[in-house]
Design a protein around this nucleic acid. Structure first.
Lengths: 129, 129
DNA sequence: CACCTCATGCTAATAAATTAGCATCATGAG
DNA sequence: CTCATGATGCTAATTTATTAGCATGAGGTG
């Protein structure tokens, strides 16, 4: 079992990475406001520095303050995270996962989204032939 | 931003929960063998005890040893984890996530799975009308 | 029944994560 | 130019997580 980068992150570090990935990039203050049970500004900056050290984040200076962004591409990390969820909860099956989401009582997909999804699947079927 | 249960777990605790969810249930030894950089058997048992304490796991005695299982239903936790990934990496869009997986170079879906997926989508479209 | 094996419950020590405070430096206003 | 504002880089302390060892008890075997 190979160890994924996410396995190396502590609780707070993970929370922060989630926020940064969700936003694309963020300042220390923005990260702080996104954290549950937010600690001091100091604490947040310390964690951010650690993440930079670990190579998870990079920062650029903009208007006198640091803006943090992930070093690894969102698309890669996202796919990997998605796979992990599929493996952990759905035997690795995308089908089961989609079924679970669609069955959720909470209506979540617009007709347009469903249509586009359908389109995607059909296309994959043709190409996969 | 409400704090999800997964936010309360430490690195090792999370790894263990993933293993248990993936297997459905597991003994201490099984958990240990599934952990990357596996620590001592003692350490694993200590973590398991903590998880029971936190209400994440329950255990039953079977053939003289404990078998651990999650207290919360796999389907619930899985949906929640899936949603989190969608929110963090795909703007909450299932469509984008599926597209990302399908475009992955690594062929991953069998024609049968694609067919069933297609079926699921169509059904959702009809019901959603 | 006596013994061997294996799992548990505790206790304790070490390592890592999390937090905060302070001195310093840059920026923009007056 | 001088000052007020806000961000940074350190340093240090505390809390939490992680790890391992040991004594005890249950169960099965000869």
């Amino acid at each position: 079992m190979s160890r994924k980068p996410a396995d190396e992150l502590s609780r707070r570090e993970r929370q922060i990475m989630n926020i940064v990935y969700a936003r694309g990039e963020a300042s220390a203050a923005e990260v702080q406001s996104g954290l549950p049970d937010a600690p001091s500004y100091s604490a947040v900056r310390a964690l951010l520095a650690i993440l930079v050290d670990k190579g998870q984040l990079k920062h650029r200076s903009e208007q006198g303050r640091y803006i943090y962004a992930p070093t690894r591409r969102r698309s890669h990390v996202g796919r990997s995270a998605l796979r992990r969820v599929l493996d952990t909860f759905y035997e690795g099956s995308l089908e089961k996962a989609v079924a679970a989401l669609l069955q959720g009582s909470e209506a979540n997909l617009s007709p347009e989204e469903l249509a586009r999804l359908s389109e995607l699947i059909e296309q994959a079927r043709k190409e996969g032939r």
